[in-house]
Each structure stands twice: as C-alpha cells, then as structure tokens.
C-alpha cells in the first residue's frame, strides 16, 4: 500500500458517498446513468467474487471488496425501485453490447492465463475502463449536469487516475508491473480527460457544468 493507491481508494469511496448523497437528498436519480451503475455492479461482481475462492489479502482488501459489491447493488436498487419514476431511460441509450462485447474480446486476448478466474479478472478490468461512458454520454446529450453529479464523476475519475502514480511507484520501488491493469487504467483515465477539462475550468470556479 502506498499513498497514491490509498488516496485513489479513498476517492473511490468518496465518489460512492457523493452518488448516494445526491440520490437520497434529492430523492431522485435524475442525470445518473443506470447503465453505468449496472456495469460497475458487473465489474465488482466479476473482480471481487474471488473472495469466494479464497483470495483474501488483507482486512482492508476484503472489507473494500464487500463494500463495493454491496454499495453497487444498493445503488441499482435505489434507481430501480424507490427512485424509478425520476429516471429517464430515453436519455440513457448508450449501447451496452459494445462495451460488454469489447471487454469480453479484450479479456480473451489480454489475460495472464487461460483460466476462468484470470479471464474473469481481465474482463472486469477492461469493462471498468469503459463503464463510465454511458454516464458521460448522458452529460454530453443533455449538455449540462448538476454539480453533485460532476463531483461524483470527478471523484471516480480521480480514483483510477491516482492508480497511475501508484503503478509508477510500485514499478520502481517493488519491481511490480501489471501491464493489463496499467494499460486499461491509462485508457480509463484518458476517457475522463475531456470531462476533467470542463470540470476544472468551470465547476471548480463556481460555474455550472455546461458544454459549450
């Protein structure tokens, strides 16, 4: 564990807290992509259910895995049951088939071993890299977003962004290098760059998130 990874994980926790805060205080899921949330639930299920076959590294690791699986299912429940009337499926139209299909193909090409757990892990890594796209698509389509939603997306982007200095640190300090996680993580961070540009130039200067 190093400071970048810890801050990254903290940022991930903050993002989920922001999302839950937005939904429970406004009693709505307006502007939130159910598809992105469903993809994250799938990402966590395919990566963290390694708990079931004994992949227990530390209390920290186990507690985080359980939290991410549990909170993602709770978020899906909130969107589908109590806040269902506030969702507009007509703007959440990104084609999931491309993302899931692409991640599946990548997991068969890039994995460390042709075994079910390794392919599942690789699938979760590639899927996570693109899971935010339906959410960014909604923001792009509507041309604006509530501030709290943009804070949520920013915290989520910061999470994988912070993993990059973590990988650099681990490469030099520990000789650890995980090329699949690194390449997918860089792709994931690049996907956020446009968003971050507007977030830093507008939202953090007190303006509303609006596309030009």
């Amino acid at each position: 564990m190093n400071i970048f990874r810890f801050l990254g994980d903290l940022s991930h926790l903050v993002s989920i807290w922001l999302l839950l805060h937005k939904m429970t205080t406004s009693k709505s899921c307006t502007g939130i992509s159910f598809k992105t949330q469903a993809l994250y639930a799938l990402v966590f299920a395919t990566r963290y259910l390694d708990l079931l076959y004994g992949s227990w590294h530390s209390m920290y690791n186990v507690a985080m895995k359980i939290f991410f699986i549990g909170s993602s299912l709770y978020i899906l429940y909130l969107i589908k049951v109590p806040f269902k009337p506030t969702r507009d499926p007509a703007i959440d139209t990104f084609k999931l088939e491309y993302l899931v299909g692409g991640a599946l193909i990548m997991s068969l090409i890039a994995n460390y071993e042709y075994s079910f757990p390794e392919i599942l892990w690789s699938f979760s890594i590639w899927l996570e890299a693109v899971a935010i796209l339906p959410q960014l698509f909604i923001i792009q389509r509507t041309g604006e977003a509530e501030n709290i939603t943009t804070h949520y997306v920013a915290a989520l982007g910061a999470y994988r962004g912070l993993y990059i200095p973590n990988w650099l640190y681990r490469y030099f300090a520990e000789g650890f290098f995980d090329p699949i996680a690194v390449i997918a993580g860089i792709i994931q961070t690049v996907i956020y760059l446009d968003f971050f540009y507007i977030y830093f130039t507008k939202v953090l200067k007190g303006q509303k998130f609006e596309l030009p």
């Binding site: 590294h57 985080m64 895995k65 973590n166 290098f177």
Partner: peptide
Amino acid sequence: YPDTQVKDEL
C-alpha cells in the same frame, strides 16, 4: 509477470 496472480489491488 511477477506476482500478477496476486491481485491485491482493487
């Protein structure tokens, strides 16, 4: 790949 089987990252 060193230790990539040990997936301790989240």
